[in-house]
């Protein structure tokens, strides 16, 4: 078991729905896999595809984006924009040698603590099944200009 693969997953959760669902799962003391580390954004629409690629480049085995259900976006339609970006992003990931299944978009509302727990567990298990991400470093080593600005 000490050899077991422990996936590292970055979660981008919107402030109003999925982040609150995670808060609710917490206050309800639901237990779930500890693999997803959450980065909060105000809206899932803020999740720049570059952030996703950046996560994979920095060693993430999976990326989970959580937003409000269609029609329930706090900012009217940010989640639709996110949804539309996924198609191209998935195609691009495949071209970079990253299984598109390593990226998942979920709509989880603030009241769906149980669903959040299930998604956390399911996705962690799915990534565990896929195994560690092995990318050809040459493919995605070119850093984005913004990231380079970081020291």
């Amino acid at each position: 078991m000490s050899e077991a693969f422990n996936p590292r997953i970055v979660g981008f959760f919107c402030n109003w729905c999925t982040y609150l669902a995670a808060d609710l799962a917490g206050t309800s003391r639901m237990k779930y896999a500890p693999n997803v580390r959450v980065v909060r954004t105000m809206c899932s629409g803020r999740v720049d595809p570059q952030l996703v690629v950046w996560a994979f480049r920095n060693g993430a085995d999976g990326v989970l984006i959580g937003g409000c259900h269609p029609g329930d976006c706090h900012y009217q339609e940010g989640n639709y924009k996110t949804l539309r970006r996924m198609g191209l992003l998935r195609t691009m990931l495949a071209q970079l040698g990253i299984e598109p299944d390593r990226l998942r978009l979920e709509w989880i509302s603030a009241s769906e603590g149980e669903r959040l727990r299930d998604v956390m567990n399911e996705f962690s298990a799915q990534i565990r099944q896929l195994g560690p991400l092995e990318t050809k470093s040459s493919v995605i080593s070119s850093q984005s200009s913004v990231a380079q600005a970081a020291p």
Binding site: V10, R37, V39, D48, L51, A55, N58, G59, S144, V146
Partner: peptide
């Protein structure tokens, strides 16, 4: 900020 945060969680 977000790029740094992503790097940090990993």
């Amino acid at each position: 900020q977000l790029f740094a945060e992503v790097q940090g969680v990993l």
